[in-house]
Design a protein around this nucleic acid. Sequence first.
DNA 1: GCATACATTGGACAATCGGTCAATATGTGA
DNA 2: TCACATATTGACCGATTGTCCAATGTATGC
Lengths: 209, 209
Amino acid sequence: MPGQKASETVRREQILRAAYEVASRKGIDGLTVRAVAARAKLSHGLVLFHFKRKDQLVDALLDRVLSTSLKLHMSEDVARIAHPLDRLRALLRQEMDRLSGEPRRTRLFFEYWALGTRHSATRAKISAELDRYRAAFRATTEDILQAEPARFTGVTSDRLAAVAVSFINGCAVQAMIDPEHFDINEYLAAVQGIIGRPPRQQHGEHADG
Amino acid sequence: MPGQKASETVRREQILRAAYEVASRKGIDGLTVRAVAARAKLSHGLVLFHFKRKDQLVDALLDRVLSTSLKLHMSEDVARIAHPLDRLRALLRQEMDRLSGEPRRTRLFFEYWALGTRHSATRAKISAELDRYRAAFRATTEDILQAEPARFTGVTSDRLAAVAVSFINGCAVQAMIDPEHFDINEYLAAVQGIIGRPPRQQHGEHADG
DNA sequence: GCATACATTGGACAATCGGTCAATATGTGA
DNA sequence: TCACATATTGACCGATTGTCCAATGTATGC
């Protein structure tokens, strides 16, 4: 049983898969070289043979988490929606459903997020991937601005995409701590009431604090 | 210098303050009994004399983080706003400003948040404190519903308060990773455009993926 | 001043961590 | 089949952790 050789790519994949399983269950600080090795049924020495340092393993796992957590897949059903704003709303709903349906991965994602506050390389990687994720929304937000320019005065498509992403992250955080008590439809309805159609905001702003 | 006695309440306060400074800089997993002791200029044995286990220290620190992070203070300027919806908007802006101005505390708060996914006691404590935080918004959201019932059909004041809190958390997360590239005014304007006044949502829902 | 109570210290311990390395098992080409 | 390259193992190391505890220092009542 022990000692079966394998190619480097196969081993790295096997180790990374085990690392993801460990981290998604025990958190980043529970991500131990020995725990990963045990999960992959390998010796801990072998893990450090393929990933020379633990940092490299953590970093590679971050790549994996980002590429799966921040991948926007526009289904055909959604792409077929003619009205751009409705399409964006469908995207929002889809992404929030997806993230709230994967609480473990979402939690791991935000653990890296918090870690990025102290670790600049991690922060840079997350920021770059968030940029890519935002860019995936741009096609739709540009359509929106073109279709209804009057609705979004002074708002760029970039900013619109940024808000969409931020909105999704906020809901994901909410769903992370309390998955049951979170209903996306109610959420959207209430936000619509709070934000939509301000009765007297344009003429005399009181904001200056 | 060493060995000066002090009352238990004073020592606990001193230790907790040091624990907060350590955790807000190094994160929860950087919160070490010895690090806290060093920060408070005490022996590590004394820390465990007042907090019998490290868990109790971490737990007491959570109380402190929650009571400061989730405290809603309605300033007189805000309370004086007659229009309830404008008052809620001002509250949102105030809280987002406050949280984004304290990135360290916010990060620590979300670290506990993520930790709550695995630790049920932590999760319960955070949920309870979030309930209290939500309740502080209820006075305003009830005023809103009373003033403009037509605007929020089928939305309760509880739900409205919940959305406000979730909204704040989402912005806080956003400001945590990238404090510079976050502008609350632009955020609110863009959300208003996305959510407000849906042109055709009520009759034929297409959501079912 | 002295005895008592207890806050405080720092050493010791086992457990666990990341990391190194000699020894070994395994596959491959001739 | 044999030599060679290397993937794999497990022992080992130093550092750090939480926790315990005997020794010591400090305040207080008498």
